[in-house]
Write a protein that binds this DNA or RNA. Structure first.
Lengths: 183, 183
DNA sequence: TAGCACTCTTGAATAGCATTCAAGAGTGGC
DNA sequence: GCCACTCTTGAATGCTATTCAAGAGTGCTA
């Protein structure tokens, strides 16, 4: 390969790399997946990975962005639906990556790239939820606060699995009380 | 030292060890604090720590239990107060250890001792919150669900710092809606 | 066809990590 | 003076993420 494979081969390799990394991260956990293990799975030398990513954390960001990108594709068909089904969708969509939620949070203070991704992610999600809440009749300030609450509930449910009934009860209670009163 | 210092010296040493560990964990983070660093701070050899704790994770559990034990002392004087002030108390009490919240969650799948501590901690907290909610008039099932929600909100606020006004708004909204309706 | 420039891969090394092991020092009881 | 027990340690192990310098592969240009 040479000069102008930049836009062709690189993305293909990165995709393979990130998909394999995602599988290992989700199966064994981020910390328990070594770069050597990932390299072996891919059939390359461990330090080859560092030509594609500056660090393991940046690889994680790549994995997260790819995962997020695929979920975002479904967003348009979701934007008209009620808040509760949006939250249910998020829970289902990120259920298998739920371990990565905790991984990201644990690395916020140590890794600038993960901190940056996390903050950006939250801004994006909250903006979407605020949009939905306002569409359902909430005031600006109330919508912002409720979006934070909704985010915390989703993160909590991802971190601490509950039965689908308990989950349903929580979302039901939230969506009723988020929109029921003076908002 | 010999035979029967078991009940005297050991606890003193463990206390010093755990207090130093807590300071380093809170200041630099759990992963960023090596056993060597902690040992140097204490003026002992790194492997000396392994006579007191089987692993770094068990040391963390020791730190968490000590921290929790000190907070629990205040519980009696808190049990009569309204839910909102209890949540405010928890937020203040664990604010400086908030990084450890994420650390614990990130290690749930890898460390049995941390998993065990975490689950026990949640059962304890939820039982206390349920007690308070029922005292304020909530039904059994409603109280259980609301305790989970309250826990998620506290964990969320610890992980994602917000202004004290935003924090106040969330707790106010929760305590109103937790007790306002048919619960 | 030779050579340059660029992309990509690698073996080897580094420094740090949690943890283990075997040896020994310190001390009270017999 | 010896035994049993508590506590400490130097040295080693195997793991980790990461770095470096060297080189292979390939297309463009002269």
């Amino acid at each position: 390969m040479a000069k102008n494979n930049r836009d062709i081969d690189l993305d293909v390799k990165k995709e393979e790399l990130e998909k394999t990394a995602e599988r290992l991260f989700v199966t064994y956990g981020y910390d328990a997946t070594s770069m050597s293990r990932l390299a072996k799975e891919l059939g390359v030398a461990p330090n080859t990975l560092y030509w594609y990513y500056a660090s393991k954390d940046e690889l994680l960001v790549g994995v997260l962005n790819r995962r997020l990108g695929e979920s975002i594709k479904q967003l348009p068909s979701l934007m008209g639906t009620p808040l509760k089904s949006q939250m249910n969708w998020a829970l289902q969509e990120f259920e298998q990556s739920s371990a990565l939620v905790n991984t990201v949070h644990a690395k916020l203070d140590q890794s600038p790239v993960i901190r940056q991704w996390h903050d950006q992610f939250h801004r994006f999600i909250e903006a979407a939820v605020i949009h939905t809440l306002k569409a359902e009749g909430a005031s600006d300030k109330r919508a912002s606060m409720l979006a934070t609450v909704g985010t915390f509930l989703v993160e909590g449910l991802l971190s601490h699995p509950h039965s689908s009934k308990q989950q349903e009860d929580i979302l039901e209670w939230f969506s009723i009380n988020a929109l029921g009163d003076l908002g």
